[in-house]
Write a protein that binds this DNA or RNA. Structure first.
Lengths: 209, 209
DNA sequence: CGAGTAACTTACTGGCAGTAAGTTCATCCT
DNA sequence: AGGATGAACTTACTGCCAGTAAGTTACTCG
């Protein structure tokens, strides 16, 4: 007999830790997304789940910790979506396009979660800032790798230039995502990806020294 | 025998409003830059100036108001630096390069003030967010105008594409500025500007439909 | 059924944004 | 001069929220 037999009713009651953690994380992601980091209190989140604040602290340690947990989950999903798209493409040019489309599409489908991550992810003090930087660093690394692979093997590229390009692409796509969200989700991911591709592709291929 | 005869000593005493406001604004810019928005309390700023907190409130209304005032002064300086450089250039290509160099150079010379503006300027709730967006919008507008001017007159450009390009450039330069600051101010503004120019110039010229 | 422990709560502390109400200093008027 | 007027400035609070100490309830397993 599974002990959780009576889980059909909406009564909150006691749940095991994993389930409660997920419940709290879901609520936090939603509320952070709606009201921002500053605008959200731990009491709000606890109340939304129907538990008391100290329970949230027991599971997530601090407000930063909880925010960080939201961020971490989102990061994994987003990174998966983009790298799947990139890896499935037959060549570099299509990989770049597919990566852009995956990026904008994912963020279309998670507009609120996105605002958690970017709009407020850069609280330059505290562990959340470190986490946000790690997310960016991961994408920058991914982009840098792609750029390197696209360069002719006999030209060891200028590392500074690769960094500059990777930061550019990362910064641009982040900003475009915010802009699209505020712009009601237009233009389409494909339109933006195409324009970006046109804008960057030639320049990328002229990186050889 | 100037009327303020005893001003030699470090005693704070009473000063007229304008002077006090400037003093507060300078301190706020410095402390926000050092500790971030969240890490700075109004008491900190008041103590640094040697006045009480309510005085700061009387002059700037709120923490957001004070932050906004810092932002506003910085914005004006930065925008001036960049648009001066752009307007002084003889053609579009050099204008773009000069704009990039001016941007990165200015931010080199004001690394702390920069972190006030960008790293924490996007608290997505509150009036500070609106102000930060206005700063960005101004730059995006400037870039969009430049792009339009560079296009052949007989081709009315696709507005979406111009927006995409402008957001891209703005997002990229913002991110590159943050990266350079954290990277100890390297590579040089000229190096970054050159790479960006190489990366974007061809793509920009292929925008014609 | 009783012991042990995981899930959960009440009731607090401390710090900070923001405010009400008052006090001190400078200047102008007669 | 000396009092009136207002600007510069302060003390002493409120309320909100992150974080905590210490306790209570209910599930589980021997």
């Amino acid at each position: 007999m599974t002990s959780t037999t009576d889980s059909a009713v909406p009564a909150k009651r006691r749940r095991d830790r994993a389930a409660r953690e997920r419940e709290i994380l879901d609520a936090a992601e939603r509320i952070f997304g709606e009201r921002g980091y500053q605008g959200t209190s731990m009491d709000d989140i606890a109340a939304a789940v129907g538990v008391s604040k100290p329970l949230v602290y027991q599971y997530y340690g601090s407000k930063d910790g909880l925010f960080l947990a939201c961020l971490s989950r989102l990061r994994a999903q987003l990174l998966d979506a983009v790298s799947d798209a990139v890896l499935a493409a037959p060549d570099a040019e299509q990989a770049m396009y597919a990566g852009f489309v995956a990026w904008f599409t994912f963020l279309d489908e998670h507009p609120r979660t996105w605002s958690v991550m970017v709009d407020e992810g850069m609280l330059s003090a505290g562990p959340a800032a470190v986490a946000a930087d790690e997310v960016r660093a991961e994408f920058v690394g991914l982009i840098a790798t792609m750029v390197r692979l696209n360069l002719p093997a006999d030209h060891p590229a200028d590392d500074d230039e690769i960094q500059i390009v990777a930061q550019t692409v990362s910064g641009a796509t982040e900003r475009l995502a915010i802009w699209r969200t505020r712009n009601g989700g237009t233009p389409t991911p494909e339109k933006v990806a195409t324009t970006l591709q046109n804008l960057l592709w030639h320049g990328l291929n002229s990186l050889r020294p």
